[in-house]
Amino acid sequence: MKLHLKKLSAHTLITVLEERIDAHNSNELKSVLLQSIAQGNACIIVQLETVRFIDSSGLGALLSGYKNAAAQNGKLVLTNIQQQVLSMFELTRLNRVFEIYPDVNEALGSKPEGPP
């Protein structure tokens, strides 16, 4: 899977450079997310601008990252989601789980979760 990782102060920006996230590459995405969290980078922004298709395994990979980030007092948020892809989050109600931002700058304005 083609990904671009960039450190942005307290956040790790992961840009997915694929048009499609499905059962063929979702495990790789999940591994990258879990590896980042294991390395102490649990505040993750996943940019999905180029992704025009996601299936249930792709949603599952992002959910895995979300849960693991939260368990490490971090947060995984999503940005730049295309409309048809967003409809999959709505159909599975995962839009109620993820924070979804129009772009990375908006996401950077969000605060990592943690103890008050």
């Binding site: 299936d55 249930s56 895995s64 599975t92």
Partner: peptide, 11 residues
């Protein structure tokens, strides 16, 4: 309490 798998048939 969404899980990481089991959504395919639902979709």
């Amino acid at each position: 309490h969404p899980k990481e798998s089991g959504m395919g048939i639902f979709l």
